[in-house]
Design a protein around this nucleic acid. Sequence first.
DNA 1: CCGCCGATCTTT
DNA 2: AAGATCGGCGGG
Length: 205
Amino acid sequence: MRRGVRRGFLTRDPLEVAPDLLGCVLEATDTDGVVRAGRIVEVEAYRGDEDPASHAYRGPTPRTEVMFGPAGHLYVYRSYGIHWCSNVVCGRVGTAAAVLVRALEPIAGLDAMYGDRAKARRDRDLANGPGKLCAALGITGEDGGSDLCGDTPSRVHLLPRDRPVGAVVHGPRVGISVATERLWRWWIDGNPNVSGSRRGGVPIG
DNA sequence: CCGCCGATCTTT
DNA sequence: AAGATCGGCGGG
C-alpha cells in the first residue's frame, strides 16, 4: 500500500502547499534501518518561474531539473558547500515550484539523530534549521529525486498531519537578497523547534 | 543575546 | 563571485 501524502495534495501552488505542510511528518529510514522522523514546523515557498530568489528562476539546470518534474519528489541542494537542504517539489509538471523545509520537531529516532548532530545538546537543536534537519534525518544529495509519496520505493517519505496545528504566522524568507517583500515563510507560532531568526511574524489570513 | 566570520562546493 | 547555512568566538 501507498505510504505518504496524496500527490494531488502537492500539485498546487506552493503558496497554498507551504502552510499546509506544517504539521506533516518528514520521515527517513537510515542505513541501519532506524526510522527517523520529525513534524514540520517551518517552511518557505519558492515559485521558480516568477521568483528571483528561486534556484529555478533562470530555467532548468542539472541541479534544478527535479523541480520541473512531478510534485511529491525531493529537491536536495548543497548550501555554502557544507550543508544539504531539502525541498518538497510541488505544482504542475513544467513549473518549478518547491517548498523548502526549514525546521522539524523530532518525534522518532532521536538517538540516531544525535549521532549525526554532534553539536546538539537539546532535542530542539537537532533539526531547527534546513541544514540541521537533513543531517538529523541523514538526507544527502543521493536522496535527491526521491518519491515522497511512496508510489515508488524510497527511504524518505512525507506523511499527513497526525494532529491539529496551532496558530500559524508568516514573514520574510531567510537568507535571500531579492524578493524580500514577499512573506513566503510560514511557521508554527511559538514552537521551540523553529530556526533562529523567527522575528517579524504576523498572523495569516 | 548579538554580530562577525570562516568553512567549502555549485552555479553564474 | 555569491550563495535558500551553521557554529565558534568575541563583545555587551
